[in-house]
Structure formats: C-alpha cells, structure tokens
C-alpha cells in the first residue's frame, strides 16, 4: 500500500515548527526520523493532513551538558548514540540500548525523541530512559516544560505531549560510578518488536532503585524501590517477585498468563543483570 495524500513542510527553526503546530488546520504529525511513522503511513493507518519535518533543525540535532546531566537533541539518531558520537552520561548503557534497536539501517534514521514521542510500548527508549530517570524537554508556544520519561506515555501511541508541543531534547542524568544497570529484552527474533522488556537501575548515590517493565499493552510499568521494599545502598539478594506479579496484574496482565510470565522473567533477569554488574 502507498500512503494517503499529505502535505509536507520543513520549518527553519523549532519556533516555526511550534507555531505551525499551533495553527491548527487538520491533523498534523511531526516527522522525526519516520522509522515507525513510515510504515504506518504506507499502511494508511495514519492519514495526516500535514507532516512537519523537524529532523534537521539545529535545536533537535545537537547536545549539551548541564549540571549532572546531558541533554540530547530529540533528533539525534540511535546510530549516533550507538557509535558514541554523543556524550554518554551512563557509562555505556546508552550505546548498548541503542545498538539493540531494530536494525542498523533503521538506527541510521530513527531518533531518540521520535521514538519517545511515538510511545510504542515495545520501544526500547521508553523503558530504558524511564529507568534511567531521564526527562523530556517539551517546547510549547509560550513555555518549555520537563516531564519525566516515566510519566510520558499514557498508553499505546499516546503521551502527555500537547498538540502544540514539540519534544526538543532528552535530559539524561549522569549516573554515579556505583550505579548498577540491568536490561533484558525478550524478542522472538533479532530486531523484532519486544515481547517483554525489563530495565533495572540501582544507583545508591542518587536513589535506591527503579524497575521498569516495558512492552506492555500500554505505558511501561514503573516500580520504585519503595514499592518493592528495596532501600539503602545494597541491592538485596531477593526481590519480592510476588509484588511485581501483583503490579503486573494491576497493569493489565491479570488475565494474560503468557504476558505476565514473560514480563516477570524479563523483570527478574534485568534485576539479576543489575546485580551482576
């Protein structure tokens, strides 16, 4: 199938893009790499009136440092992160997650911000960055705001981003030397959409513990140390898996034996990996 008709604009600045978004005039989508939007356009699952291409804007393609964090432009590609072409405040976590996204040809064009804004539950960044405590920087007509990635998605393909906002950058906090990380993705085949994702971060210097379970039927499930009885500077030998199971039940897996099983395993293996690092 071929895409339905739409118009295309490439604004010269982020401000122009934001203003154009606010003009109304039908169904407008932002193009930020298009590696997931492209197939949906081709299948006519999305039929926008206008596509605004923000991939080449200087505001979305660079990076900067601020206190305790790196800000990565929304249209930095997965491949740039994989190749270490942007500073990595996580001690190697970002490149490893990036390298596991789909295929190299997709990573060459797909972007970190595009992936987050698209909010496919099976996407890596949504879960990984939520676990890392990252925030997105959203630019609107009158103001800029920051939202934790853990609170960004509200369901499948849906986010808290307002219609006239653009995701400009991702703020990724610098991890301490003692941070421990575990990431486990279960997929049927390499490069395929994930069946289940577990992401666990234990950073004793910043906060105790965060576990994110992704590739759910909606927003990722984010559990902090308090929910799992993890506190202090050491990762306990046993995590309360039953509590994770109850959280999964409450997150839509009560009647899905398979889904619950594989998500529990992904969560446990992510924690085990964090413990081993």
């Amino acid at each position: 199938m071929k895409a339905a008709r739409f118009a295309y604009e490439r604004p010269k600045s982020l401000r122009q893009a934001v203003e154009r978004l606010g003009d109304g005039g039908g169904f407008v989508k932002l193009l930020a790499g298009g590696q997931t939007l492209g197939p949906m356009l081709n299948l006519r699952l999305v039929q926008p009136d206008l596509l605004i291409d923000v991939t080449k804007l200087s505001e979305t393609t660079g990076w900067s440092e601020e206190a305790g964090a790196i800000l990565i432009g929304a249209c930095v590609t997965h491949a740039m992160i994989e190749d270490g072409k942007v500073p990595d405040p996580t001690g190697g976590i970002l490149p490893r997650v990036a390298a596991g996204i789909a295929y190299r040809a997709v990573r060459n064009r797909g972007t970190i911000g595009g992936s987050l804004a698209h909010a496919d539950p099976a996407a890596d960044w949504l879960s990984a960055l939520a676990a890392l405590g990252a925030e997105v920087v959203l630019v609107g007509r009158s103001a800029e705001r920051r939202v934790p990635v853990a609170e960004l998605s509200t369901g499948v393909f849906s986010t808290v981003i307002a219609e006239d906002e653009v995701l400009r950058a991702v703020r990724i906090p610098r991890l301490s030397r003692h941070a421990r990380w575990g990431y486990y993705k279960f997929w049927r085949k390499t490069g395929d959409f994930a069946e289940a994702i577990g992401a666990a971060l234990h950073d004793p210097e910043r906060e105790a513990f965060r576990l994110v379970i992704g590739a759910t039927n909606g927003a990722p499930l984010v559990l902090d140390g308090a929910a799992l009885g993890v506190s202090g500077s050491a990762l306990p030998e046993r995590i309360d898996m039953a509590a994770i199971g109850r959280a999964l039940d409450a997150h839509g897996f009560a009647d899905d034996d398979y889904g619950k099983a594989v998500h529990l395993v992904a969560a446990r293996r992510a924690i085990e990996r964090a413990r081993r690092t």
Partner: peptide, 14 residues
C-alpha cells in the same frame, strides 16, 4: 549510511 528507502520520504531527502 544504509537506510530503508521504503520508509524514507523522497521529499525528506532534499
């Protein structure tokens, strides 16, 4: 760099 031409818009290749 290798890319998928089926999900890359020609118009975006200006």
């Amino acid at each position: 760099a290798p890319a998928r031409s089926c999900i890359t818009l020609a118009v975006a290749c200006d």
